[in-house]
Write a protein that binds this DNA or RNA. Structure first.
Length: 424
RNA sequence: GGAGAGGUGGGUGAGUGGCUGAAACCAACAGUUUGCUAAACUGUCGUAGGGGGUAACCCUUACCGGGGGUUCGAAUCCCCCCCUCUCCGCCA
């Protein structure tokens, strides 16, 4: 959520930045600014009103004490009248704030200056590429064939017990999942992230805190009876650990990591290109999250990007990093780098990580702040990244490392799997 | 799920309906003392909104789990909800 004083003072710059998302928010922003004037004026009137009522009430108390009952009684209606008008002002104030908030929820974060403008994924910019396409035999197989051949993952079983998009991992397939999770967590821990195991369901307030609600309501599974949401990413519970918290400056940066399953309804996004592991309703992911001082959040974003690069290199995967254009970037992000691993048999890039700086957009909703060196409270910057999401990593690993003798496991992973080859 | 007790500032914990935004203690921060540390002493020490001032800061409003109500006046009384603890039940 953008900051209202900021909208007031930097209207032009903000509009120019938002233009990169190919939408014009001029009307909404002007209305927010107008509502803010109403809000401040009303607040002022209400304050004066209440101050007067408080003063009179005190006087009435004093009059009672000194035995001047008649005078006290005579003053009561005046307070009552003040209270009456205060009630109206309070209503106006609440309505104004509510309307303003609803409008604010419709405005996405302002893209950073280096975000390319553009509408679709075609306008994203490749900023880094590593490795080479694997040389595979003519009869190479896509991962959905390999997992059947080696009996690693069973989609039909998942469909039977739950539904489409809920795979069952079996044998070496299950072991590979566990190996990857442990590998990713160890890498994150080595990089100074503290490991957490958060709840997999969150309440409404948490959904609002990180920006999944209200705009992405339909993307989360909702447990109606208890009014809880299944997390779409560990970002939600981890970042919300610091909702309504005021940190000390020296506590920054807060570095958290966590493995969780992630649940996504992916409503309406099924079709071509989503076979096998390419898109699931439940998948595993290790997330890294940081709460940082605003002065160095972009330096830290680079560090996080380097961290993810390092993991992909250890996995020996051919990958590239792209900077998302305004049209392709998430609602809450100010700058996002996507990581795409090469899928040797599908012969296309698969998104395996998204690493973003949200600046104060989430922090403002979360009310996550720190006391700066001047003793003033200030919003932190929040960042997060997948490090990494499993399914497409598994898809790439299986496809790129297929050999006539089996599927080769990258050296860095062998200590975790306990085998260096998946065989029939 | 049933019964009971309770939710006050970073913590512990007071608080007859007006003098309580809130005692006291601890923690924290700053200073004095000190060779250093400790101790002692002094001071500061919630959050948010509005108004004023270049600024230090000043004025004001709201907040004692959340929401409503009673009253001239509510942390204090009433209602609803949430949460925590204890006992019972159930249970990995």
């Amino acid at each position: 959520m953008l900051l209202v004083p900021n909208l007031r003072e930097n209207r032009e710059n903000i509009l120019a930045g938002l233009a990169k998302r190919n939408k014009d928010f001029g009307q909404q922003i002007d209305e927010i600014i107008r509502l803010d004037e109403v809000r401040r004026k009303t607040q002022n009137d209400l304050d004066n009103n209440l101050a007067e009522a408080n003063k009179l009430s005190k006087e009435i108390g004093d009059l009672f004490k000194s035995g001047k009952k008649d005078e006290a009684e005579a003053a009561k209606p005046r307070v009552a009248a003040l209270k009456e008008s205060a009630k109206e002002l309070e209503q106006t104030l609440q309505q104004t704030e509510e309307t303003q908030k609803q409008l604010l929820y419709t405005i996405p974060n302002v893209p950073n200056t280096i975000v390319p403008s553009g509408k679709t994924a075609d306008d994203n910019v490749e900023v880094f590429i590593w490795g080479n396409k694997p040389q595979l035999a003519e009869q190479k197989k896509p991962h959905w064939e390999l997992i059947e051949e080696y009996d690693l993952i069973d989609f039909e079983l998942g469909t039977k017990i739950t539904g489409a998009g809920f795979p069952v991992y079996k044998g070496a397939g299950a072991k590979l999942q566990r190996a990857l999770i442990n590998f990713f967590l160890d890498e994150a821990t080595k990089a100074g992230y503290r490991e957490f195991q958060p709840p997999l369901m969150v309440n409404e307030a948490s959904g609002f805190g990180t920006g999944q609600l209200p705009d992405k309501e339909g993307q989360m599974y909702h447990v109606g009876v208890d009014d809880l949401y299944l997390i779409p990413t560990a970002e939600v519970p981890l970042t919300n650990l610091y909702r309504d918290v005021i940190l000390k400056e020296e506590q920054l940066p807060v570095k958290m990591t966590g493995y969780t399953p992630c649940f996504r309804r992916e409503a309406g996004s099924w079709g071509a290109h989503v076979r096998g592991l390419n898109r699931l309703h439940q998948f595993d992911k290790v997330e890294i999250v940081q709460l940082v001082h605003p002065d160095n959040s972009y330096k830290i974003l680079d560090e996080m990007v380097d961290h993810v690069k390092g993991i992909l290199q250890k996995l020996e995967l051919h990958f590239r990093v792209i900077r998302l254009c305004g049209g392709d970037m998430g609602f809450t992000s100010a700058l996002t780098y996507d990581f795409e691993a090469w899928s040797g048999a599908q012969e296309r890039w698969l998104e395996v990580s998204s690493t973003s700086n949200f600046e104060t957009f989430q922090a403002n909703r979360l009310k996550c702040r720190f006391k700066n060196s001047e003793g003033k409270t200030q919003l932190v910057h929040t960042l997060n990244g997948s490090a990494l999401a499993l399914p497409r990593i598994v898809a790439s690993l299986l496809e790129n490392n297929q050999t006539p003798d089996g599927i080769r496991i990258p050296a860095a992973l062998v200590p975790y799997t306990g085998f260096d080859m998946i065989k029939k």
